[in-house]
Design a protein around this nucleic acid. Sequence first.
RNA 1: GCAGCUGUAGCUCAGUUGGUUAGAGCGUCGGAUUGUGGCUCCGAAGGUCGGUGGUUCAACCCCACUCAGCUGUACCA
Length: 506
Amino acid sequence: MSQKPAKPQRLKARLPRGLADRPASELRATDAMLGKIRKVYELYGFEPVETPFIEYTEGLGKFLPDQDRPNEGVFSFQDDDEAWLSLRYDLTAPLARYVAENFEALAKPYRSYRLGWVFRNEKPGPGRFRQFMQFDADTVGSGSPAADAEICMMAADALEALGIPRGQYVIKVNNRKILDGVMEAIGLGGEENAGRRLTVLRAIDKADKFPWEEVTKLLGSGRLDESGDFTKGAGLAENEIAAIHAYLHASVQVDGALFLVRMASPQIDQSFSAIAAYREGIAEIQDMFGLIQAAGYGPDRIKADFSVVRGLEYYTGPVFEAELLFEVKDEKGNPVRFGSVGGGGRYDGLVGRFRPEPVPATGFSIGVSRLAAALKVLGRLDGLNAPGPVVVTVFDKDRLADYQSMVARLRAAGIAAEMYLGSAGLKAQMKYADRRKSPCVIIQGGDEKAAGKIQIKDLIEGAKADEAIVSHTERKEQRPAQIEVDESALVESVQAILARHFPAAG
RNA sequence: GCAGCUGUAGCUCAGUUGGUUAGAGCGUCGGAUUGUGGCUCCGAAGGUCGGUGGUUCAACCCCACUCAGCUGUACCA
């Protein structure tokens, strides 16, 4: 009996949850995507800026109230002077810090875009990571509804530039002041109602996710979900719930520059209109849509949606959300809605935290990773099938110099090429080239060398030819898609093959 | 956080009322083919059955605890 040798205790290679490695195909696809978005932002006159991953926690505003500790949702650590530092959880707070710190030097309104990783220490899920990429554009220093309108139009243009057809996405617009007014109208104004107000707003946010009966439960006594978990409700009275219902089912009439909002019941309309914040919010959204419609962006691209609730802590006026409308099936056949792929709004208080004067600002953020997943499903993700390098196989190990010089000739002609650097035989080298998605391989054994020839095998053509071949011997005899040319014709022969398979390139 | 479900090979999954040596497909590696990827055939490697404890003559299977994953829900600045 041979004894099994004790297994060495080996480190387990594993990635912390909520994080993802990104293979070549994904990097290429993301690059292509980002280029398209960047082009749109540049067209609108926005300039790039970059800030670091790390900020002072206090600058992010992420200290827990009454505690000397950062919010758990941010990755934080202490500097050697004990000051708390955090990985940024979005790109807006760092931008606010940047603008405040460089206020005098920047031309205002300051229009900039930026792209980068952000980090959230939260429970990950499908399409939700602890590190993900955002692509933002913001206008700082303008309180004009034109700035808000422009941001929305730019978001719509960006989605279309990525190949999402009109009608398959929509930019939804609401206004915090309208929401605040409605809260006040049902008696939830004031500091003492902050908790219940939050509960009600969250229930409103669920309006596009749950049917109205479920929202009613959340507004009333509470809701028991299918797993048996109970969510406490806001405890609103029936007439208050009716007011929310009327609000969510308000009609919006659009006629040229005219934008009219009417609640389902005249009494409720009247009670809302008695609130100053409500009137202000309605006026702002009317101004915005006047501009949006004048620019030719109809409700098929940008529309009002009163159920949008975002960033309760810092948005002060208009809020936006980009939603994809198409539904797809995942590998298991379950329907998947991508839903929100971006959002934004006006955050007039954020820069002002660092400055004596108030600084209005508005912006929009695209969730790059989630959008990339959606584009993949749509088949609009480029760069997934980029060809690999031409592989020059090593036949005689003592003639590496010959092979290397072929590689150099190909590279000099701008053709991606490499010499096989492993130690395996020709068969394995062919497999390697196959896996690398090489368009073709170069083979030169002793016979060819003596005759001043090389073999070029077109792997793409070969794969096609193989469909008709049944036996190995047949393949071996035919050597499909393989040509023999003079050594001197290496570059032009490879170029011909590439031109055949990738007519656009080169 | 709360609730439900699931943890068996790199991946997807079988595994009988608790009973010898835990299987398959795919993938990987090798061979058939010392000079040619894909098709075919043959072979091999690969497992602390998530972990710990318990019940039992005997546990992948039953029980308790624990960890991880998935789903829903909550939170998401």
